[in-house]
Amino acid sequence: MKRNHLPFYLTAGLLFIAPTLLLLVQSFTAPWRFQRGEGLQFQLNSWSLLFSDPNLWSATIWSLVIGAMVLLINLFIGLTSGKALALYSFRGRTIVESLLLAPILIPVLAVAMGLHLFMIRVGLADTWVGVVLIHLVPTVPYSIKIFHHAYSEVGRPLMEQSQMLGASVIKQFLTIEMPLLRTSIRSVTFLTIVISLSQYAITAIIGGGQVITLPMIFFPFLDTANASVMAAFSVWFAILPLVMYIVVEGLLQLLPYSRKPWRIQT
């Protein structure tokens, strides 16, 4: 059967790839004035301007630190509860499952406002730890969902097989579960970092303007910088998840039985 691939590539190109290209091109050219008949003018000023801003670097580092912590906690909670939900049947399982997914629907703004007083009381307001905690609210339910699904795919029998062959709990986790959950770990990495990087309001409320992450300097930038710098800044936002992804991928390579991933895929 012959298929015309054009519709797909056209749609994907316009809807999903073009916006990225748009940002990239704008970041390397002067602000556009096509209405005056001007063409593209290549420049690197936007990037040097962006990188010369000291706020950008500290915000980037804080974003990475907070993102990494949020990711670690997400992996821990997601792996444990995903395993419990997928591989065990116990009373109250459906209720627990709905409860764990419910935070997706609760406005995180309401939660942050509610937790604000509590954070002040326990001394976590205006600290990065407090921000990490509040970033867990919109991320953890997704991680649980992803790992729940992943553990169901792997299935109990494969784990029992490993148990029968004498693997301890830890060895089983490292040699069977982690390698087979690799794809899900990647998804969780991406999702967690991007969601964490998206939070302005709740970071502002809990961080109290003291914890400066990238979204916190986005609005001030918008008021002062031109389109080229803003485009460069926008691209910078997407680079962080990529960096985190590469780090996680590198760590995953350290696991046993991690070679030749391309052969396993088919």
Binding site: L85, M113, F118, V140
Partner: peptide, 23 residues
């Protein structure tokens, strides 16, 4: 399984406490 669920249940304190306080 409840031991495995413990971290997730602890996490639930955050949104529920937040929402309860808001109410």
């Amino acid at each position: 399984p409840w031991l495995l669920l413990l971290p997730a249940l602890l996490f639930l304190i955050l949104p529920s406490y937040g929402l309860a306080t808001a109410i």
